[in-house]
Design a protein around this nucleic acid. Structure first.
Lengths: 196, 196
DNA sequence: ACTATTATGTATCGAACGGTAAATATATTG
DNA sequence: CAATATATTTACCGTTCGATACATAATAGT
């Protein structure tokens, strides 16, 4: 498969990164095509030729976002104890949510929490990805419990949901202007609920 | 001040309630004027005559929403101990977030978490109201601390932010389909972080 | 050089957006 | 019964939305 025709004048991944930033800040529906193409440095037909349409672009952006951040996620789940898993997840989220280089909070939450019917497929995709992340935490905690790393009366599903809730809440906090130091204190408080 | 001219054919508060429901479900930008006027049972010029424009309508809806729910809020803050304040806030939020009669979660979070620049004033209004609610919790906990109802080494601001974070996280959870039972378990876990 | 293929730039599409002008309907006041 | 005042209805405004048709530019293969 050799390249034919006029070569593309922009880098796909670089353009996706620019689009990511816009979607992250404004959400799926809040980001207009002029917003996106301006940030990407291309014009509309080039975007449609390369990515299909707005929704397909968003899905590719989400895919890229997840791939980038799954490393941090996987690293947290790879911690030796459940307690350290929780710590890494919460502290990592606090760090991400207060990274001045990015819009505040998590794209999976900000992307389409509420929207018009037209964006429902996108909203459901984000719901599914949040659920998948929570399920991954739950499975890790189930393993921890079977290893005796969590008390016999603890509930991995409940703990996973609690962690997800606090992480998602941090996105709202960050969107409201919470600082890194403030989020880190939230993490310390939240960890006091962890079974010992 | 006596009524003159043709009388209004609809009830203002009832129309606001219908608009509330639409904004609650779709957010400020996701709710279109046809969505709103259809739910309100009136046509566009009547809406503009009665409320001004879409943003003014939203602000009146928010005002009404806050007034309705401030009762629940005030009741929680009126609990005798800090522990009971936290319990009431979290359990009340879990109940509200999983009320099948309403869209899932809190309007102050769902209304405009991320949006286009055009909706920034509305987003900032919601940020301010969330901050005001958190400040009210903080003041109640400061009082509790001064009354010896909270440990001397506890931090009311941090605890208030933690409660806000969990409550806001529950809105995201509810938007993702979490059930009442699941949210109640989140509350029980979250309360284990509470200082004794 | 010529053809085939792909990307880009311009100019535009129909639909939906928030918002209104103007005419008509329904009430109170004198 | 006018005269006045407000509400509703219809039809429409200009703008922005996501998405494209079409002509032009730039590459590879023969």
């Amino acid at each position: 498969m050799v390249a034919r025709g006029r070569p593309r004048s922009f880098d796909i991944d670089q353009a996706l990164d620019q689009a990511l930033y816009v979607f992250w800040e404004k959400g799926y529906e809040g980001a207009s095509l002029p917003d996106l193409t301006r940030a990407m440095g291309i014009n509309r037909p080039s975007m449609y030729a390369a990515f299909g349409n707005k929704e397909a672009l968003f899905r590719k952006v989400i895919e890229r976002y997840s791939a980038t951040h799954s490393a941090l996620f996987a690293q947290a789940l790879a911690q030796p104890t459940a307690r350290e898993v929780a710590e890494h997840l919460l502290k990592g989220t606090a760090g991400l949510c207060s990274d001045r280089g990015n819009p505040p909070g998590c794209l999976l939450v900000r992307g389409a929490l509420s929207c018009s019917e037209a964006a429902d497929p996108v909203r459901e995709e984000l719901v599914a990805r949040r659920a998948a992340n929570e399920a991954a935490i739950r499975r890790r905690l189930e393993r921890a419990k079977s290893e005796g790393d969590l008390p016999i009366d603890s509930n991995p599903a409940d703990l996973a949901r609690y962690l997800s809730t606090v992480m998602q809440g941090m996105t709202v906090q960050a969107s409201g202007g919470a600082t890194r130091a403030q989020l880190q204190k939230v993490v310390l408080t939240a960890l006091r609920a962890w079974p010992s």
